[in-house]
């Protein structure tokens, strides 16, 4: 909206006496529309988290590998994705790659790809730290029982690592959920974008944006609560 229009609009509503601060009834008809954006955000976050997390496990195992090229690959990967802005990575995937491959990636797909790749870089460091913190005796005990490396990782080392790094992983996924608002910049109709759409439609900003903020907050609280439950359950062996 141009500044001139904005000024006109606000003056207009001022004159008409519609400036009641935070009158949510004004956006009541749009609430279902905004809320369905929460579903998009959630779907997006879950998909990115699942792919990103799986990739992070693979990367973290590369990082502790004895085979140097794997280590190099994972280290370079992490340094590139941590060293450049997320919004730039998103723009590259969404706007630039179609020029290369001739396939227009839908916004949500581009978002999931970018966010999974990006969060894998961060989480792989967390997981690597978690693996290294597991007592060396655990590995030796598994080895002396004849357990092969993949099984040992899956059944003995990773479960113990995850228990210790769960709070850090929850942090990572909260960041992911909030950063997902960036997909609004490539036109995905997520929670953030829908708030902006309603705001632009009605010339009111506080109500839709604050409402969107509240929904984000509730989602993050839900995630925190879920994580606390999970942690209690995992600590049952202490």
């Amino acid at each position: 909206m141009s500044p001139l229009l904005f000024e006109a609009a606000s003056r207009n509503s001022y004159i008409l006496g519609q400036t009641t601060f935070l009158d949510f009834s004004k956006i009541a008809p749009n609430i279902p529309y905004i809320l369905s954006g929460a579903l998009v955000t959630l779907q997006f976050t879950i998909l990115s988290a699942v792919f990103g997390f799986s990739l992070a496990i693979v990367l973290s195992i590369f990082k502790i590998s004895k085979f140097k090229p794997l280590r190099w690959f994972a280290d370079i990967y992490t340094s590139v994705f941590r060293g450049t802005p997320l919004i730039l990575q998103l723009a590259l995937v969404y706007f630039a790659t179609p020029q290369l491959i001739g396939y227009a990636i839908p916004p949500l797909q581009a978002g999931v790809i970018t966010f999974a790749l990006n969060s894998a870089a961060y989480s792989s460091e967390t997981i690597r730290g978690g693996i290294l913190a597991v007592d060396k005796g655990q590995r030796e005990a598994a080895q002396t029982l004849g357990v092969k490396y993949p099984m040992m990782m899956k059944d003995i080392i990773l479960p113990q690592a995850f228990k210790n790094i769960l709070p850090a992983l929850v942090n990572d996924s909260i960041a992911l959920l909030k950063d997902s608002a960036l997909v609004s910049t490539v036109g995905a109709l997520d929670l953030m974008r829908r708030g902006q759409v309603v705001a632009a439609e009605k010339f009111i900003y506080f109500e839709p944006l604050i409402f969107v903020g509240i929904v984000y907050y509730v989602l993050v609280m839900g995630l925190t609560f879920f994580a606390q439950n999970l942690e209690t359950r995992m600590r049952r062996s202490d």
């Binding site: 005796g137 655990q138 005990a141 002396t144 029982l145 357990v147 092969k148 059944d155 003995i156 202490d238």
Partner: peptide, 28 residues
């Protein structure tokens, strides 16, 4: 070749029974 360590190295996230059954099931 079984081995017993100074610091036991039991699997803390598995019950006693699971500690005993894990390798026979998964390896043998």
């Amino acid at each position: 070749v079984g081995m017993v360590f100074q610091h036991f190295n039991l699997f803390p996230h598995k019950t006693v029974l699971q500690n005993l059954t894990y390798a026979p099931v998964c390896v043998k």
